[in-house]
């Protein structure tokens, strides 16, 4: 079921995460307006809770974008962020929600192409999967 206006949330770190977004848009790149970006100091700050709450608050897909591993401004932050994303994906599979709704990406401040590709991937996933089907026993 395709959703004409999906809701996607992206948690971007304020270092290479937002810098790669900035570079892309300052090269004329466009991306799906459905993507809502939230800045965090480091993707290590992202808790599984934030991702799950975003899904609960209406997001069809959530991504986390941080610096490349071993190049994280805060050393191990993006590695921690990835662990959190993996944990959430496991949880989602266990409750029957498609894990590909949640994804971790890494970028550097020189990648013009990366952010538009991320936005496009998540947008396509959100449209393909549609909103999360509420389970019968929840409201």
């Amino acid at each position: 079921m395709a959703d004409a206006k999906p809701k996607i949330v992206g948690f971007c770190c304020e270092k290479h995460g937002t810098e790669s977004v900035d570079l892309a848009i300052r090269s004329g790149e466009q991306y799906d307006a459905s993507v809502r970006l939230v800045t965090v100091p480091c993707t290590g700050r992202v808790d599984g809770l934030h991702i799950l709450k975003a899904l609960e608050d209406g997001a069809d897909a959530v991504f986390v974008l941080g610096c490349l591993e071993k190049n994280c401004y805060y050393d191990t932050g993006s590695i921690e962020g990835r662990k959190r994303v993996e944990y959430v994906r496991t949880m989602l599979s266990e409750v029957g929600i498609e894990p590909e709704r949640v994804e971790m990406f890494n970028a550097s401040s020189t990648m013009v192409w990366k952010f538009p590709e991320i936005a496009s991937t998540m947008s396509q996933t959100a449209r393909r999967l549609g909103p999360i089907e509420p389970r019968g026993d929840t409201k």
């Binding site: 190049n71 550097s108 020189t110």
Partner: peptide, 15 residues
């Protein structure tokens, strides 16, 4: 030049 990493940094120095 391009960044040489996908998920992990490869220490090329470009960024």
């Amino acid at each position: 030049l391009t960044c040489k990493g996908i998920t992990e940094c490869r220490d090329c120095g470009v960024c």
